[in-house]
């Protein structure tokens, strides 16, 4: 149920359907009998930065896994540039993934390879480029993230922020159309966070790619994203510009955006009556 700033999800979508790169239509997904999504609808516009937000456990990362075809929805469609991701065969899915890049929360660098080899990895796997050209591309990408000087370091020698910047350079190596960031700011100091924010904005503006950022960081995203979706209860609870959602009528959206410790997402995990349990235990 979407309300307040935009009472309807479709009206909050910043672009016409033809301008959407990714369309999620009536997606249902459940795992182990627990429903994660029940009729999720949203669209990701081309060339913009879209934020996917929501309380922990609402399925933001699951949504990314659905979009990238790692899992299939129970019902509904996920269209990437008009292609239904969930019906693709493995070979077709891999072809589609060459148009995507995903930055993992922990960077997910290959720990047995140097920084240089990590960035060169997708180039070596997908192209027959000569070594000198691969070297130039890798150094260009590392220069873009400010880590050309760290090319020979191993992942274990990098800080958290450097790790994510290398992962970003690796993701950019094959020039994808869409970049998906899964919790890119988690665990970073303000300087590293600032670097990542700058890179996300720069990549999006300079290369005209579509960016999807999953994060809890309301402050950083308010200055970064063009459109935001707040997901709660298996659906889109609110959509629109993040700054405009501050006065949203939905309790859960308010609780999330204002960081309230209690509300629709309760402080206490559901349990039996406290007094009764204490008395029962003492007996």
């Amino acid at each position: 149920m979407v309300s307040a700033v935009s009472t309807d999800v479709s009206s909050a979508q910043p672009a016409a359907a033809s301008e959407s790169l990714i369309e999620i239509r009536d997606v249902h997904y459940s795992v182990g009998g627990r429903s994660i999504f029940s009729g999720l609808n949203l669209s990701i516009p081309r060339g913009r930065i879209t934020a996917l937000m929501g309380p922990s456990g609402t399925g933001k990362t699951t949504l990314l896994r659905l979009v990238t075809g790692q899992i299939k929805p129970t019902r509904g469609e996920i269209l990437f540039d008009g292609i239904n991701v969930s019906t693709l065969k493995t070979r077709e899915l891999y072809a589609l993934r060459r148009r995507m890049g995903m930055l993992f929360q922990n960077g997910a660098l290959l720990t047995d390879m140097s920084v240089f080899e990590n960035v060169a990895f997708p180039l070596r796997e997908h192209t027959d480029l000569p070594e000198c050209l691969i070297r130039n591309i890798v150094l260009t990408k590392l220069q873009a993230v400010g880590l050309r000087g760290a090319a020979q370091l191993m992942p274990a020698e990098l800080s958290g922020g450097m790790n994510r910047r290398v992962a970003l350079a690796r993701t950019m190596a094959t020039d994808p159309e869409v970049l998906i960031y899964d919790e890119p700011f988690t665990g970073l100091d303000p300087i590293s966070m600032g670097m990542i924010v700058r890179l996300v904005r720069h990549m999006n503006a300079a290369l005209g790619i579509t960016s999807i950022v999953v994060s809890h960081d309301v402050h950083e995203l308010s200055g970064l994203s063009d459109t935001s979706y707040i997901i709660a209860g298996g659906k889109v609870a609110a959509a629109g510009k993040l700054n405009e959602l501050k006065g949203h009528q939905s309790e859960i959206v308010n609780q999330f955006l204002n960081g309230l410790p209690d509300g629709p997402v309760p402080f206490h995990y559901p349990a039996a009556d406290y007094q009764q349990q204490l008395l029962a235990d003492s007996e």
Binding site: Y94, R97, M102, Q105, A108, L109, L110
Partner: peptide, 14 residues
């Protein structure tokens, strides 16, 4: 556990 295999899959490599 550290998403390296998923990252490889996401780079369209089996």
């Amino acid at each position: 556990a550290t998403d390296q295999l998923t990252a490889i899959e996401m780079m369209a490599v089996d």
